[in-house]
Each structure stands twice: as structure tokens, then as C-alpha cells.
Design a protein around this nucleic acid. Structure first.
Lengths: 223, 223
DNA sequence: ACAAAAGTGTTAAGAATACACCCATGT
DNA sequence: ACATGGGTGTATTCTTAACACTTTTGT
């Protein structure tokens, strides 16, 4: 049998968080060639002794201090296949993951300045990472219509306003308050808790929680 | 920097054709270990000098005599990441592609007995390939509702009956003839040609063609 | 009493579904 | 003339979208 030399395998993560009314993505400033000094998605090489998801966790921990427990959803997005001529590292196969978390904070003082940027105000990114982020956002827009994926972005208890704001941030458009409540309640995604959000100078809002803390497909679509 | 040994990279294809009222998938009988003698999706190793899509084309040509020109649609499906312990070859990263073609015929006499099997009557497959086929079919079901992907499975000119039969084979359920025509025409996916299918002992059916021979997203969903 | 956000129903338009008969051709 | 699949329209149900006021709290 012919002898094959394997391409290099790398892994990158598109890590998203919801902060206020903004959806934000984690970037690092590269300290090594290629693209030294440019912003990029966090990533690294995958060695033979680890799976791509293990390599991803190792990378997010090393570069941004994020722990696997804080990451409430991980899904493979796409695998890029860079011909040797277009990548200074030679032929590389990059497996990209889509990662969501709740209230993520990058650890200060880590080497590559891990920073969350609002998705509608990204700097220029190394590789084709601007496109990768765009595709990720499209995927999230799709998934939000037929799954309970918002559970991965919101705190465990939240108000209807927070939920609607999250949907609006992801879909990029305003939703009607009454229709939104009606639709969400019909989907039986969430349930009321006994408590209220009392931290504001107005009528307290009831807190809700997701019934399931893992991905489920809806029987009917939202929207 | 730490030294990494790259995992092995392989590529596999889920090649589908529409024959009569059946959707069929291409399988080969493995001649090498692991899983020698079992049916599996056609695949092979990817070397550093080729991309995964090039490796896929090389494989489909070598194992089943299929030519890139006959393959009307190719899309990446998923990348499996087999930890070293579960795969006799050690840690392998397998990039799986979803491939559609029109009137595909595997070349007889090629080594690994390339054979199309109806998707609802598959033998047991090596690796996790039965699951892979299942996921592929779900993907196709999804895509058929919001794209013109049927163009890749039907001949360039076809009757409404062929079109409806194709949709039914993919969706796995019967559709109402009148509603189907109405819906398809509203989507402006296809256009009538001047000719008719005269090869039958009954009223000739008008032949239609797809307006676009490349993937397009529909503005409104089918179904 | 005022400011601020919470909470609540109805109507109209559009989309999806169910359903049965006549038409054109070959044998 | 008959067998076979081709081709066509309407009525009903369900889903989506538009829209404004009252309630509850803190200051």
C-alpha cells in the first residue's frame, strides 16, 4: 500500500457569549507566526494523543482561562482544508467548533489577550475567520428556530425580557412582545419559577427557567 | 514549542442516487483490515499532497469508477474523531462528505464490489457508518425543504411525477398531488420545457427543468 | 404622582391541508 | 372502449402578524 504523510490537524473554536443586548465572540491576538499580531479565533494543533474536542478544551483553558464546565454547548461546525499553497504551515485540516457559554469572562493576564468582541464590530481576523464567524452566526440563527439552544446562553433563571433580548440579538431584529410570549409558552420550552427579579425600580419580573439543560429539537418551529 | 504528531486523516463519502422510487447509497466491501469483508462507505487516507475533496474524488474514481463530472453536488457533512483506543488504526480524523449524482452506475469489475443499496435496506456497516448514513438522510430531508437540491438527483428534464416521487422518497411519506404542484410552482424552482415524455401508454407528461443547476436557498420553505 | 418595565387578547391575513373529477394518449 | 397516468380548483383549518392599554413597583 502507498505510504501517506498525514496533513497537520488543527482545532479552532468560535466561542460566543451573550452580554447585555450583544452577542460576543472570543478572539485572541496571535503571538506566533503565521499572522503574528493579528486577531484570530483561539485554536491550536491537535496531537495524536488527544481528540479534537480535548484539544479544543485544552486551548480554551490555556488561552482564555475558560473551563469545560462553563461551556454549556459545543458542536462541530466545519472542517477547513487548506491546500499547502495557501497556508504558510503547509496542508492543514482545521476542525472548527461552535461553543456557547453563560457569563464567560476571559482570564486577564493570559498571554494572547483573550477578548470578547461584539459580533457586529469585529476587527479583521487572520485566516478566513471573519467568514467562519459569519457562518457560525447563521447556524445559530437557524438553530434558535428549531431547538432550545438559548438555554446555553442565558443564566439558569431569567426574565422574559432577557429571553426576548437574546432572541433579538441572535436574529438581528425586533420581535413583538405579546407574540413572543405566546409563541414561547406554546413551545413549552420554559417554566415559571416562584421568584421574581427585584433588582429594579419598577414592577418585578417573574423568573423562568428552561425545562431542559441539553439540546432538544422543537416539535414546532419558533418563527 | 511542543512537538505534535499529527493524527491520520481519512475521507469518506456518502454517495446517493435516486433510482425509480428508491434513494440508494453507494457501499463497498472492504478488502483490507480493519473490517475486512464488511460493507462500508467508500473512503481512503488523505495525504499531505491533496485536499480532502481531491482525495474523495480520487477514491470514488478508483473504487467505483465515478467521475467528478457526474457528481452534481458535494458538501461536507461531519468530521469524526476516533480516539486511538476505538480504532485499530490509531487516532484518525475522518472527514465525511455528502455527495449526490444523477443516474450513477458503479463501474463493474472494480475491486471492492461497489454497489448501491436502497437506504431502507442497508446491511450492517463497518465503523459507525450506519449512523452516518442516517444523519445524511436527515440532512437531505432538511435541505430539500429550503433549497433546490433536487436538481442534483433528477435528470436534466423530468416530469412532475418524477419530481414528486423524488420528494416522497426523501421525505419518506406521500404528498398530495395537487398541493405539491401548487407549492412547487409557487417556489419558481422549475420551468416547463416545450417537450413531453412520450414513452408511455397514456397521456404524455410535460417535461420540466430546474432553473438553476447549483444550490440555492428558497425564500420560502417547501412543506 | 410619576417613571419604568411587566403583563395581557383580539382581529385580520396568509398558509397549509383535504379532497374528486375530467383529459389525453396507447393498445 | 378501456386502462393509465396527467392535469386541474375550492373550501376549511391553522398559523402568523399587527396592534394598545392596564398593572406593579421604586423613587
Amino acid at each position: 500500500m502507498r505510504q501517506y504523510v498525514a496533513p497537520t490537524v488543527t482545532v479552532d473554536g468560535v466561542v460566543l457569549r451573550l452580554l447585555g443586548e450583544q452577542l460576543e465572540v472570543l478572539l485572541v491576538r496571535r503571538e506566533q507566526s503565521p499572522f503574528k499580531g493579528e486577531w484570530a479565533l483561539p485554536g491550536s494543533y491537535v496531537s495524536r494523543s488527544e481528540t479534537t474536542t480535548q484539544a479544543l478544551q485544552r486551548t480554551l483553558h490555556a488561552k482564555a482561562g475558560l473551563d469545560a464546565q462553563q461551556l454549556t454547548f459545543t458542536e462541530q461546525l466545519y472542517t477547513f482544508d487548506t491546500p499547502a499553497m495557501q497556508d504558510p504551515r503547509g496542508h492543514a485540516v482545521s476542525v472548527i467548533y461552535f461553543v456557547l457559554g453563560r457569563g464567560l469572562q476571559p482570564a486577564a493576564g493570559k498571554g494572547e489577550s483573550p477578548t470578547f468582541f461584539p459580533v457586529d464590530a469585529l476587527p479583521h481576523l487572520a485566516y478566513q475567520h471573519n467568514d467562519v464567524v459569519w457562518h457560525t452566526l447563521e447556524r445559530l440563527k437557524g438553530k434558535i428556530t428549531y431547538t432550545n439552544i438559548m438555554f446555553a446562553l442565558l443564566p439558569s433563571r431569567f426574565t422574559f425580557r432577557q429571553l426576548q433580548t437574546g432572541y433579538q440579538a441572535i436574529l438581528g431584529r425586533a420581535l413583538d412582545k405579546r407574540n413572543f410570549r405566546k409563541k414561547i409558552l406554546e413551545l413549552h420550552l420554559i417554566e415559571p419559577t416562584a421568584s421574581f427579579d427585584k433588582k429594579s425600580a419598577h414592577r418585578p419580573a417573574r423568573l423562568y427557567r428552561f425545562k431542559k439543560q441539553s439540546l432538544e429539537s422543537l416539535t414546532r418551529n419558533f418563527d
